[in-house]
């Protein structure tokens, strides 16, 4: 009588190598904590009150209305409107994405396909921006750009963002290239393609999803960058994160939360697209 129940229970128990319910629950809880700041900010943006008490006393869309008004008719007191900051942000992110990808694809090819002297050094250098203190990078780039004989405006942000995004893009391109065998390239060359043409027409299209993932990552990183940009921005060139910070230095008004929700939504859409693109393989970091 109890034996079917027992076997049912045994079937439900996780096999070795499967995650138990306890581990799943614990991980879920930890991940909830990890995204809690983002979630609480989203809830706060719907607050009907004008303070930061949580949970809010009432809910309304008043901050979204206020945010919309700021967007369409900027105060004269603002040094720069959100529209301009958004344009700059998108421009910088797009340029950084393009440059980082153009630079990373050949680098990935060299790192995967070639055996050469100094490869270990090259690999170390590629991951250097990942661990390089961002504050020092900001300080150092500011030193360089301020001592140049000519003025750079948007391009100094692009250069900084390309450096920051490079390890991520190279990593994704390398992973994509590793999954393509040497033989396709050899076949193309045997059929008469020059080595360069074999790369451009055969290898690069096969790497498409890895390259696209790298591009998306570069865009997200540039669009969200704060620390280095904080050192490099000036009145004419300001990205959205800097604009938001300059608004909240004196006091935190919840309109900022509605802008923040918009940005989080954009980020989430990009991340979701990124994961879909890379599929089950997972993004490489």
């Amino acid at each position: 009588m109890s034996s079917p129940l027992k076997s049912l229970l045994r079937a439900a128990a996780p096999l070795p190598g499967e995650t138990g319910r306890f581990a799943m629950g614990l991980s879920g809880f930890i991940l909830l904590l990890a995204v809690l700041p983002i979630l609480s900010m989203i809830v706060m943006s719907f607050s009907g009150a004008s303070n930061l008490d949580f949970p809010p006393a009432s809910y309304s869309l008043q901050w979204y209305k206020a945010a919309w008004n700021t967007f369409v008719s900027p105060d004269a007191s603002d040094v720069l409107s959100l529209g301009q900051a958004l344009t700059t942000s998108l421009l910088v992110a797009t340029l950084s994405m393009l440059f980082a990808t153009l630079v990373a694809v050949p680098a990935a090819y060299a790192l995967v396909r070639c055996e050469f002297r100094g490869k270990a050094v090259a690999l170390q250098l590629m991951s250097l921006p990942l661990v390089f203190p961002m504050v020092v990078l900001g300080l150092a780039l500011l030193l360089i750009f301020d001592n140049l004989p000519f003025q750079l405006s948007t391009s100094r942000l692009v250069i900084a963002h390309v450096i920051l995004a490079l390890p991520f893009v190279v990593k994704n391109c390398t992973a994509a290239m590793l999954s393509i065998g040497n033989e396709v390239e050899e076949a193309a060359q045997m059929l008469g393609a020059s080595p360069l043409r074999a790369i451009v027409d055969v290898v690069v299209p096969l790497m498409r999803s890895g390259i696209l993932a790298g591009m998306l990552l570069a865009f997200i990183i540039s669009f969200n960058e704060f620390t280095v940009t904080y050192f490099l921005y000036n009145i004419d060139v300001m990205t959205v994160p800097i604009w938001m910070y300059s608004r909240t230095v004196s006091s935190l008004d919840p309109t900022v939360f509605s802008f923040a929700v918009l940005i989080v939504l954009i980020d989430f859409a990009l991340i979701w697209a990124l994961e879909k693109l890379v599929g089950d393989g997972g993004v490489s970091f």
Partner: peptide
Amino acid sequence: AAVLLPLLVNLLLQSYG
């Protein structure tokens, strides 16, 4: 996605949270 959000979303916004 839950792992990547805290990494990629602007730290400023998370600090507001």
